[in-house]
């Protein structure tokens, strides 16, 4: 009967999905047996005892202890069984294995953002390696949302100001659908994402290259995102105020004087060098405290930061 299950349910992309489907199908056949009995008796009695003439007296049948006990106790035992079955699978799925890969998910009207342990960020597409336990840590920036992955049979409401989690181990590589399942306003039905279950190599390659969204963004917008995400903003302001480091405002094309007395007109190469080897030239009046970002930024992100600084006239 697998074809029948597959007709009713989405693909099974985890072991948990298979467990859920087993219980689903058990309940289906159990309730179907009751339903067919109810229908049969209802229709059969209505047919067989259809009124033939008016004004007849009928039998006085008000109690049958055995019958009444049977139809109270048997369903009770069955539903208690279903309760334990459902609870066990639920409890098992809610415990995260110790070696889980943790990915942060943020819901916001009406998109999803994913943050990976190495700082990579992606929008509307979640990449995970196949057969690796994943723990999603989710929160919302505005109203309630819900993160729903049908092929994994998992879902959780997402609440502003609180973290909730989902654990899963995806076993089927490919692209799967993610929905927002808690009503959140105008574009609720458009608040979707793709789950990419990749081979370990493909996942590593993707992390290296970064999310394809990065390549679609305006370079200056990407630069602004890097400035926020990588913590540049804690030392470099964009409004001209002095921080731990020089402000980005009006930086491009300015003549900077360094601690060794030399000067330079700020250009692309100077900015690139300052990011990758910050101690090479330290602007006069500042401490040499900036760490290197060698290996922490992708080429496209460095270009983005340069574009962003150019925009801050």
């Amino acid at each position: 009967m697998n074809w029948f299950r597959d007709w009713m349910m989405p693909m099974q992309a985890s072991e948990h999905a298979a467990k859920v489907d087993n219980l689903y199908m058990f309940i289906f056949w159990l309730t179907m047996a009751f339903f067919v009995s109810i229908c049969y008796l209802t229709v059969a009695f209505a047919w067989k005892y259809k009124r033939k003439k008016e004004g007849v007296l009928t039998i006085n049948f008000q109690h049958n202890l055995a019958l009444e006990l049977a139809w109270s106790i048997i369903p009770l035992i069955l539903v208690i069984g279903v309760f334990f079955w459902g609870f066990n699978d639920y409890a098992a799925a809610s415990v995260a294995p110790n070696d889980s890969l943790e990915i942060h998910v943020t819901g916001k009207k009406w998109s999803w953002t994913f943050e990976y342990p190495d700082g990579t960020r992606s929008i509307r597409s979640l990449h995970v390696p196949v057969n690796k336990p994943i723990r999603l840590i989710l929160t919302s920036e505005d109203v309630l949302h819900a993160f729903f992955i049908p092929v994994l049979r998992t879902k959780t409401d997402i609440i502003p100001g609180r973290y909730v989690d989902i654990n899963f181990t995806a076993t089927v590589p490919g692209k799967h659908q993610v929905f927002c399942a808690e009503y959140c306003g105008k574009d609720h039905s458009g608040m979707m994402a793709d789950l990419f279950v990749d081979s370990p190599e493909k996942y590593a390659e993707w992390l290296e290259k970064g999310d394809e969204e990065l390549y679609k963004m305006k370079p200056a917008d990407l630069g602004k995102m890097v400035w926020e995400m990588k913590g540049c903003n804690s030392c470099h302001t964009v409004d001209g105020k002095k921080g731990e480091g020089p402000s980005f405002k009006g930086l491009f094309g300015r003549t900077e004087k360094f601690t060794d007395g030399s000067t330079i007109v700020v250009d692309e190469n100077y900015i690139r060098e300052s990011i990758l080897n910050p101690q090479a030239k330290v602007v006069a009046g500042f401490e040499p405290v900036m760490p290197t970002f060698q290996g922490l930024l992708r080429e496209i992100e460095i270009k983005g930061v340069i574009a962003y600084i150019k925009e801050l006239k």
Partner: peptide, 28 residues
Amino acid sequence: LMFLILFGIGGLTGIFLGAMSVDIHLHD
């Protein structure tokens, strides 16, 4: 008679939703 059949479906499908692991999939 319609009630008996339709309430049968309404009540019995509640068992799917009462079972926690299945409800997580079917909720909303």
